[in-house]
Amino acid sequence: MGERTVPGPAAALELRGVTAGYDRRAPVLRDVSLAVGAGEAVGLLGPSGCGKSTLARVSALLHRPYAGTVLLGGEEARGWRHRAPRAQRTAVGVVFQQPRLAADPRLTLAALLAEPLRATGRTDGIPARTAELAEEVGLGPELLGRRPHEVSDGQLQRACLARALVLRPRVLVCDEMTAMLDASTTAALVAVVERYRAGSGAALLAVGHDRVLLDRWCDRTVHYADLVSGAVTPGRRAPADTPAG
């Protein structure tokens, strides 16, 4: 930590000295700091098993770190999982690596998509919003009545992305969103994310191990190894010519 400099308004997402994991004696993340400016797209690169997904879950307030703080729009996270205030939880949209595991097998795609709206009591205009998002991510109306086991991985990931966008989050965390998908679906999903960001000014944290993809997709790419002990200084809309690592 120490000599951090945040120019302009507060970062959309900031992790300060986060230590997290599943065993106190051997945490996966040790003293990690990272900031994503408003409207900025940051790619996070790292080898398998290094803790990228844990970092993504901490960022989305889904995993309580042992130490450190998470700030959303300059405001400190006041809890984790259910204890996090609903407004903070829903400010971060998450897309997980495996759509099969991230979709309740009993819900149809339409119900899956609308679930966050129902959970937050915004039940007005659900059909319209569902149809609009389904079209945006490229899901035909005939797919919306199907359950997860009746569609392909790519189609299911499209639905999961739509679900992450349905509450219009200010930060989008994509944890290896395209790792299991082919090139054309990857391109389509990245295009959806970029259209959303252009329209909403949301920040993006894209976690992955595909350097070529992240370099082309994001404003800047950081390597996981450089995050430890505040080695990374955040910038706002930094040029994409600083691939770390």
């Binding site: 999982r81 939880r89 971060v92 979709a103 959970a119 937050t120 509450l167």
Partner: peptide, 16 residues
Amino acid sequence: RPYIDAAISGGASRWR
């Protein structure tokens, strides 16, 4: 399972 994580992230209460 991740779909529980997704539900929490989508604002679902414990009860829901």
